[in-house]
Design a protein around this nucleic acid. Structure first.
Lengths: 347, 347
DNA sequence: CTGAAAGCGCTAACAT
DNA sequence: ATGTTAGCGCTTTCAG
C-alpha cells in the first residue's frame, strides 16, 4: 500500500476525521500533552505517517504568539567575519530550537531599519543585529520592536541594549606595541572611514594610543583611509609606496586583514619585499591570514564564538532570563607570524 | 504629545476601535484595497502612526496561506562559495519581497532533511537547497514538500527537480588543457572524496578527460584525496613533496582554490618555489586567489550569480510560471595568473 | 481519557 | 464607502 503523501496539504481536522477522533485529541498527540489512550494514539500516529501530515507552523505561531524565529540583520554576508558570525549564530540558535531569518542590509542603513520592520511584522521572538554604526533611526526601531535585541559589533550598552563586541582598541594597541617592540618607530596606517566606530575609530585609536605611549607622533602623510575591500588595501599601498621607497615608514598597520592582504599583494607586485623592505600587520585573523605568503601577523578574533555568544544572550532574554544590558567583550589573541620584520635582533 | 509606541503589541481590532471604524476598514487601508473615504483613511493612518501598530504577519500568513518566506539550506555557510551564493540568493529574493530563512546543515545529510521538515512546517513558499550530495532521503523529502524547490550545486534534473550547477567537468578540463599547453605532462591531483559528485567526481573527471585526450596516463601515486580545508591542501602537498623533489609531477591541480592555497602555503614553507619548482592551479576563483603570492591560476565561477539565478528560478515557480525541471548550467572563465609556469617558452 | 467551543489576528466575500 | 460574518489551522480551557 503506497502512502498518499505529497497530495495537497491537509489540516488537523482532516487527520482527526480520518482517525475518527476530535481535533483536540490529535493536537494532544502532536504535542505530547494530556492523556491519550495508547490505542487511539497509535491510530492517530498511523494516519499521520500515512498522510505525511505536518502541522502548520503558522497556525501554531498565531495561537501561541511565538514563532521560534529570530531575525538576523547582517551587512554584506559574504565577508569572512560576517559569515563566521552568522554560522555561530545559526549553530547556537538551532541548539535551542530557534531558526534564523536573514536580512542582508548590504551596508545601507535604511535597509537595517527596513529589515527590523519586516522582522517585527513577522513577529520574530528576537533580533540579532550586526551593526556598523548606530544611527538614530536604527536605535529608534530597536526600541520600538517589543522583543529582545542583541547588537553585535558596536557598543550599544549606553543605549540600554545588550551587545557583544571585540576589544578593538586594546587589540590594535597590543599589535602596535608588538610592531614597536620589533623596532618599528615609523608606522603607517591603512584605515577606513570613521563612521565605522569600531574599525574606523577604535582600531585607529589603539594604534594612536600605542604610538603616544612611547612618544611617537603619527605622520598624517602615512595615514590613508578608504573602504573595506582588497582593492582598497592595494590603493592604500600605492599611496604609501613613495614613502616606503624613501625608507620610512618601515611598517604598515592595516585595520583589517583584507586590507593588509590587498596591500601586501600590491607591494609584492611592485617588487617591494614584505617584510624585508616593509612590514605589514592586519587585524582579524581571517582564514587565509595564516597561509598567505608571507604569513600575516595579526590579532585573532573569534568571530564564530562572537555569533554564538550573542545568540546565547538573546536566547536568555527570550526565555525571560533577564540579562544586564551590558557590553560583552570578547577576548583576542596576538598572532605573531612572518609579515613583520624584527628590526632589532637579539645580540 | 509623545507616542505610546512600544507598549504591548496591539491588534487590528484595537486600532479599529481607536479610529472608530470596523476592522475591515482598517484592513482596507493596510492593503490599499477597496475604497476608503480620504478622511477616514487619514484618521486610521493617524492612529497607526501614533500607536506604532504593525499588523501581524503570522495572522496574514495564515489567512493568505503564503508566508513570503523561502527556506534555504546551506552546508557550512562560512565558506567563500556558500556565502557568495547566499548573498546572491538574499539579494535576488528581496527584490521580489521574499525573505530567506536559513538552515545550516553543517554538512550533515540528516540536517538537510531536518531543515526541509522545519521549512515545510513553517509553510515556506519555496525551498533552495545547496546540496553536496543527493541522498535518497533528501530526494524523498524534496518530493514530499509541496512547494517549489531549486537545487544548487548538484544536478537534480534527472529527478525532475530544477537546479543550477556549474560546468565543473568542462571547467576543470579546460584548466587542465591549459596546464598541458604550458608544457606540463605530469600533473598531480589534490582531490576530495567522491561522494561529492560535483567536486569529487566531475572536477576529477575533467582532469582525467584532458589527460586522456593527449594520451597521458594519470599516475595514481600523484593523486591524493582529503577534505575541503586549507589544512587538507597542506596535507596533500606534504604527500606529494617527495615526488616533486624528484622532478615530477611538474604541476598540481587542486580541485578547489582553498586546497590550492593550503598546498602552496605548505610548499613555500618547505622552500619549494611556486611556480619555479612546481606549478599549482585551483578551481573556483575565491576572492584571495587573485591576491595570493603567487597569484593563483584558476577557473572563475560566478557564485553570487549562481545564487541569484537559483532564486529567480524559484520565484518564477512560486508565481506559477512553471519552468522546465532542467539543469541550468552557469558559465565559467579561465583565470590565467602566476602560479603556473610555462615550460615551453616561445622560441 | 476525549470532545465542544472559543479564540489567536487577519482578510474577503457579502451585505448594506 | 463601510460593516458583518465566516473562516485560515491550530491550542486550550472547560465539560463530560
Amino acid at each position: 500500500m503506497k502512502s498518499d503523501a505529497g497530495r495537497q496539504t491537509l489540516n488537523i481536522r482532516q487527520v482527526a476525521a480520518r482517525a475518527g477522533v476530535s481535533t483536540s485529541t490529535v493536537s494532544r498527540v502532536l504535542n505530547q500533552s494530556g492523556y491519550v489512550k495508547a490505542e487511539v494514539r497509535a491510530r492517530i500516529e498511523q494516519v499521520i505517517a500515512e498522510t505525511g501530515y505536518v502541522p502548520s507552523g503558522v497556525a501554531t505561531n498565531l495561537k501561541k504568539s511565538s514563532t521560534q524565529m529570530v531575525g538576523v540583520v547582517i551587512p554584506r554576508i559574504n565577508s569572512f567575519a560576517s559569515s563566521e558570525i552568522t554560522a555561530g549564530i545559526s549553530t547556537a540558535l538551532s541548539e535551542f530550537g530557534y531558526i534564523p531569518i536573514l536580512g542582508s542590509s548590504t551596508n545601507i542603513p535604511e535597509n537595517e531599519v527596513r529589515y527590523i520592520d519586516i522582522f517585527k511584522r513577522q513577529r520574530v521572538d528576537g533580533v540579532l543585529i550586526l551593526a556598523t554604526q548606530l544611527t538614530e533611526p536604527l536605535l529608534e526601531s530597536m526600541r520600538e520592536i517589543s522583543v529582545p535585541v542583541v547588537v553585535i559589533g558596536q557598543d550599544a550598552s549606553a543605549f540600554g541594549i545588550p551587545c557583544v563586541i571585540q576589544d578593538e582598541r586594546q587589540a590594535t594597541r597590543q599589535l602596535t606595541d608588538h610592531l614597536i617592540r620589533s623596532g618599528h618607530r615609523r608606522i603607517g596606517l591603512i584605515g577606513v572611514a570613521d563612521w565605522d566606530i569600531q574599525v574606523g575609530c577604535e582600531r585607529k585609536g589603539g594604534y594612536l594610543d600605542a604610538l603616544a605611549a612611547v612618544g611617537i607622533e603619527a605622520d598624517p602623510a602615512w595615514t590613508v583611509t578608504g573602504g573595506f575591500d582588497l582593492k582598497d588595501g592595494a590603493a592604500g599601498a600605492d599611496r604609501l609606496v613613495p614613502y616606503i621607497h624613501s625608507g620610512v615608514p618601515t611598517a604598515l598597520l592595516a585595520v583589517t586583514d583584507r586590507l593588509a592582504i590587498g596591500a601586501m599583494s600590491r607591494l609584492i607586485e611592485r617588487r617591494i619585499d614584505v617584510p624585508q623592505e616593509v612590514s605589514v600587520a592586519g587585524v582579524g585573523d581571517i582564514d587565509v591570514a595564516s597561509v598567505y605568503n608571507p604569513k600575516l601577523t595579526t590579532v585573532h578574533f573569534d568571530y564564530f564564538g562572537t555569533g554564538a555568544v550573542a545568540a546565547h544572550m538573546l536566547v536568555a532574554q527570550m526565555r525571560e532570563e533577564p540579562i544586564a544590558p551590558e557590553a560583552r567583550i570578547m577576548p583576542f589573541e596576538l598572532r605573531i607570524r612572518d609579515s613583520v620584520a624584527n628590526l632589532k635582533p637579539r645580540p
